[in-house]
Write a protein that binds this DNA or RNA. Structure first.
Lengths: 195, 195
DNA sequence: TGTACATCAGTGAACGCGCGTTCACTGATGTAC
DNA sequence: TGTACATCAGTGAACGCGCGTTCACTGATGTAC
């Protein structure tokens, strides 16, 4: 009854509508809850309609995850324009995880078994990490794979994980991250003055 | 035919057998694949037998996760006895994640929605983190919640996550972790000599 | 400008599947007397 | 020491469910002439 009124026979942009609905589920519940049928239901379309645009459920998830990595890149890039680029970069990463937990979990978690099977996803993920590592390594291209750059990535990623998995209460998350990143960016103050 | 020979009517230790079978599935496939029916099947017992010992599927998973946290604590404790306690602690954490990916993911992932609902799990997890933070903070009890202790936890946890989620190839994992932990324990060498 | 037709985004019914859980039961074990 | 009986760890059948995917189809859109 309202279908013909609200929506013409052709949806217009079902792929994006599916991705958006999937992200709603992602944030409401989590990656395990995202299904083709449930997603289609939210869009108001039959479950089979999705197959015109996605080869499978996994294909839909991969496309959502790729979108997520592109957003993460954009967020990090934007954060780098202030006076404290590295600190803000780290905070942006943490903020992304906190704001988009479900998406973050999909991007990094075990739901997508084979990232490599989806070139667009693989590329988006690679670009995000390259950006992060380059930012930390500075102008020196060669040091992109330095342990220091990997360590920074690990720190930022680990804190994000601990926050979104409720191992550290969310209300402390931003404050702690701020302190940690500031300290990490400062010449180390000899953690424990010689025994 | 072989059931009465290999196993008496009463199993003897079904709870442990269930946990062990669940962990096999965990390592073969991942947390999503662990089901009550599948686990019981592996033990060679009817699906309903499990309900004599676990209130639900989630209860079984919680009990497996609690076991995992106790093992993580033991592993970390053992690592602290050498000449480089902090470095070995970090390496032990990473090694635990690499060796027991599925278990690690269950312990930290979103499968167990409400950790707090299972006191034994909650306690085991808390004990593991307290141990880690105390180890990093040193004798000084008060600094257990220092940003520095949290940062160390985040670093170790983040690297573990990146490794087991295949964002950094496993063959580099141990070497990288070693370099990073050694460097982190050393008075910082002024990452970028004044612009 | 009008018509024939190919294209393609939708539809609903149906498939087989494995899941978690409940039920009424069976049969071995251990205890009280 | 032997027997009656409560306890309790198992069993198999059945439930309802939602899932991913396939199928044959319908009907709107856009294009060639």
């Amino acid at each position: 009854m309202d279908t013909p009124v609200n929506r013409p026979y052709r949806h217009g942009d079902l792929p994006n509508a599916m991705r958006a609905a999937a992200r709603t589920i992602l944030n409401e519940t989590g990656p395990e809850a995202v299904g083709l049928r449930e997603t289609a239901r939210r869009v108001g379309v039959s479950a089979t309609a999705a197959y015109r645009h996605f080869a499978s459920k996994e294909d839909l998830l991969a496309s959502v995850a790729a979108e997520g990595f592109r957003e993460l890149s954009a967020t990090m890039e934007a954060a780098m324009s202030g006076p404290e680029p590295l600190i803000d970069l780290g905070l942006a990463y943490v903020e992304f995880a906190l704001q988009k937990r479900g998406l973050f979990r999909l991007m990094f978690g075990p739901i997508l078994v084979e990232r490599k099977k989806y070139p667009a996803l693989n590329e988006a993920a690679g670009a995000a990490f390259d950006f992060l590592r380059s930012a930390v390594a500075g102008e020196d291209e060669a040091s992109r794979d330095d342990p220091a750059a990997i360590a920074a990535w690990g720190l930022v990623h680990g804190l994000s994980s601990l926050f979104i998995d409720d191992l550290i209460p969310e209300e402390h998350a931003r404050g702690l991250a701020q302190q940690i990143f500031v300290q990490a960016g400062t010449p180390k103050p000899q953690r424990r003055p010689a025994a």
